[in-house]
Write a protein that binds this DNA or RNA. Structure first.
Lengths: 168, 168
DNA sequence: TTATATTTTCAGTAATTTTTGAAAATTCAA
DNA sequence: TTGAATTTTCAAAAATTACTGAAAATATAA
């Protein structure tokens, strides 16, 4: 397969993949494009390569910067801003995990704390079913929270090595 | 907090949570409702409690059944079908992991295999950047694939126990 | 069988999300 | 400063996704 075709396929599939994970298609495509681009790109490069509007490009780049997946780069003597993405996939995954933990897991755990001490007789089937499910989720969520904390701090070699031992 | 309010909050938040993970709101809400319901419910119960149409209810129940998260139940001497959801959150998570692995991770790995052997000189910066990223993702993906396989087969106690040791 | 209860389908509609593009704001070289 | 280059904003339009409700299909009791 030729490079150009392979790049297109990668970008398009990474975009489709994103939509299954609550990330919008364009944002995932910009991320894909920047990951496979050896040099930083300008907003106009991205617009041209993905054939999308200036506004769309700008908003999604900004969102990628918020997620910590893309950085602004100032190039010596250039007026325009350039953008670049982390290319080490392990670092990318860690960054995504870190953000999603903060944005989703932590608020969910807070909610569960509130919901767990619902009024009513634990003998009531309805009350029991509810609190059992809520505490189960809370327990698993707390475990996940701790595990992810360690993972976020870990080096790739350490993590993969440990997992290898654990999971053969 | 009163049970009814807590249930409402749980259902509504579980729905919002789902949308961040590529699952539609209603499907996640039906799942939430069934998880906290001690007894199986009919389609009409679900329609009434979530205030949604028959068609919507039916389609999303079927989808939940496809995901292996909800089961049809025939109740002795009853004409109507009843539905129930797995309440052990560890089993729920394992089932979701299993499905997503099959639906997303495996096809992605197949694609990466194809994309990895792109034509062209490895000295070419463009080619190198592309293949480096693709092989990096493939490597991590394969590791994840193996790890998840073991997780799917594991008992909760084994998994949590091992993680505890590993991650303090 | 037949009648009735129940489930499923799906075209049309509604709601939500994404994208555009032009105007406003900002930046920076001269 | 000024003004051209560049970035940002955001109302409106387009695209996508989800939902409704009634008709069709299916299942079951009599």
């Amino acid at each position: 397969m030729k490079l150009q075709e392979a790049r297109q396929q990668f970008i398009s599939n990474w975009g489709a993949f994103g939509t299954h994970w609550g990330i919008n298609r364009t944002m995932a495509q910009i991320h894909a494009l920047l990951m496979i681009s050896p040099d930083p790109l300008t907003q106009d490069d991205i617009m041209a390569q993905l054939d999308i509007s200036r506004g769309n490009t700008n908003m999604n780049i900004r969102e990628l910067i918020n997620w910590g997946l893309v950085d602004r780069v100032i190039l010596h003597g250039e007026r325009k801003e350039y953008f670049t993405a982390e290319k080490d996939i392990w670092k990318v995954v860690r960054q995504i995990v870190k953000e999603r933990k903060k944005r989703e897991l932590e608020p969910m755990l807070q909610l569960l704390d509130k919901l767990e001490d619902v009024e009513g007789d634990k003998r009531d089937k309805q009350v029991k079913a509810f609190t059992d499910v809520v505490s189960g989720i809370k327990k698993l969520g707390k475990q996940a929270d701790k595990t992810l904390d360690v993972m976020i701090r870990a080096e790739e070699s350490w993590f993969v090595g440990s997992l290898m031992k654990l999971f053969r």
